[in-house]
Computed example of a mutant assay.
Amino acid sequence: MRYAAQFSDTISLGQGTPLFPTPYFIYEALLERSKVDGKIGMYSDAIPEIEKNLIELIKKQIDDDYGFYPNSKELILTLGGIGALFSSLMALIEKGDEIIFFDPSYPLHLSQIHLAEATPIFVSLKENDGWSFNIDSLKKAITKKTRAIILTNPNNPTGTVLSEADVRAIAETVISNNLILILDEAYFVLTYGKEIFSPLFIPELRKHTILCRSFSKEYAMTGWRIGYAYAPSELAERIFNIHTYFSICPPTPSMVAVTAAISDPRGKEAMAEMIKKISESRNAICTRLDNLPNLFTYHTPQGAFYVFPKFLGFEMPDMDFAKLLIKETGVITVGGSSMGPSGMGHLRMSFASDISVIHKAFDRIDKFYQRCGL
């Protein structure tokens, strides 16, 4: 995207963010609260009821989504889901530890593993079988240095949603090896025709799991930077301490905004409408990819809002091809090699935008396709 900044009239299928405005009632709620409460701009400990109320709402959300009601000592509010993930790694990992990384997966996980001075151990997903996961490959990757498995489900970038059998196989492996599962479920609400089976549905796995989620994707609030971690209380205390040392606290105005988002019925209505539009864009991008069989091959995403096609007919690194697309079409994508070795030769495309954006981008790619004589 830095490369794309030198060009005018670009269309982004690159950044993983819903290209929809935050619902306006959330702004209104924050404005009204700010008129009567001068502490909104202070650290959250100046108005502890804001944090307490939000924690209670998250506990109810966890009960609704996962079927259990955590206690307050098991929850930490964080600077987005990224703050939850990084604090968890820093609280858990020692230099030289190994972390299982399903490949390809979210590239910021890789960066955070390196920052924690741990070693990522790649367990490749099988593209020829719909980016499926192999339990034997996972078991062979575990050593005495293995500390945790990091899992994004639904997967970013492949859009894969693990089956219940796969989740149970991972759970058995985590428990039998006394590991921690760091679970990134930022896209929990975004699945298409396949119900998600979360590892947290398995009660005995919960004491081995750190859940990291945010409100960024669900309510189009990526810039508000509020997320949370759920973990066993002893781990949660360490995560809280790490997060405090690098952030003090999440932004107080954003806590007010998120409280409005998840307590007002209009929040769920706005979420449902956004998911409907993203589903339409998913259908559109798949149709447009189907019309370019000599340029792309792909698997239909079951969740999240990404498709991860392999490009054909060009013998070059994926980052170079992504730059070529920008130069020739103005369409921004992300090279797949940043997401692990199995991502080489692929592009991540986000369809988290209005259907008109998808068609505009692919109208340009179609012309490039024709110029190339494919």
Results as ranks from 00 to 15, higher is better:
Leu205Asn: 02
Ser263Tyr: 00
Phe201Arg: 15
Thr152Gly: 15
Thr222Ile: 11
Cys372Asn: 14
Ala5Tyr: 11
Ile248Glu: 08
Ala304Trp: 01
Arg282Ser: 00
His346Val: 02
Thr287Phe: 13
Ala186His: 09
Lys323Tyr: 02
Ile175Lys: 05
Ser8Met: 12
Ile121Trp: 01
Lys367Glu: 12
Leu110Asp: 03
Ile202Cys: 05
Arg33Gln: 14
Ala148Ile: 07
Pro317Cys: 09
Phe201Ala: 15
Tyr187Gly: 00
Tyr24Ile: 06
Ile358Ala: 03
Leu235Val: 07
Thr152Gln: 13
Gln6Tyr: 11
Leu325Trp: 02
Met1Glu: 13
Arg2Gln: 11
Pro253Ala: 10
Asp64Asn: 13
Val167Arg: 05
Leu211Arg: 01
Pro157Asp: 08
Met90Thr: 09
Tyr43His: 14
Gln302Met: 06
Lys139Thr: 06
Ile40Cys: 03
Ser350His: 01
Lys73Leu: 13
Ile100Ser: 02
Gln370Tyr: 13
Ser44Gln: 09
Ile99Leu: 11
Asp63Asn: 15
Ser342Gly: 12
Ala236Trp: 00
Leu108Ser: 06
Thr329Gln: 03
Ala118Leu: 05
Ser214Met: 05
Trp224Gly: 01
Glu172Gly: 08
Phe368Glu: 08
Phe308Pro: 02
Glu127His: 14
Glu117Trp: 09
Ile332Gly: 00
Gly130Gln: 06
Met344Ala: 15
Asp363Tyr: 11
Met255Ile: 14
Tyr24Val: 08
Ala220Pro: 03
Ala257Phe: 03
Ile358Phe: 04
Phe362Trp: 03
Phe215Thr: 07
Met90Trp: 06
Ala284Asn: 04
Ala272Thr: 09
Arg2Trp: 09
Thr259His: 12
Pro154Arg: 05
Glu127Arg: 15
Met221Ser: 04
Gly80Lys: 00
Ser279Ala: 10
Glu237Ala: 13
His299Tyr: 10
Leu324His: 14
Arg225Trp: 08
Leu30Val: 10
Glu74Val: 07
Gly83Phe: 01
Gly303Thr: 00
Ala29Gln: 07
Asn155Val: 07
Ala231Phe: 03
Pro203Cys: 09
Glu172Trp: 04
Val161Ile: 05
Ala352Arg: 02
Asp136His: 14
Glu234Ile: 11
Phe102Met: 05
Pro120Met: 10
Ala272Asn: 12
Gly330Pro: 05
Thr244Ala: 12
Asn241Pro: 10
Gln15Val: 15
Asn156Leu: 14
Asp97Lys: 10
Ala260Phe: 03
Gly303Ser: 04
Ala229Leu: 03
Ile332Tyr: 00
Leu19Ser: 15
Phe20Met: 07
Gly96Ser: 08
Leu31Pro: 09
Ser353Trp: 02
Glu164Lys: 11
Ala141Leu: 09
Arg206Gln: 11
Pro18Ile: 06
Phe246His: 13
Pro70Ala: 11
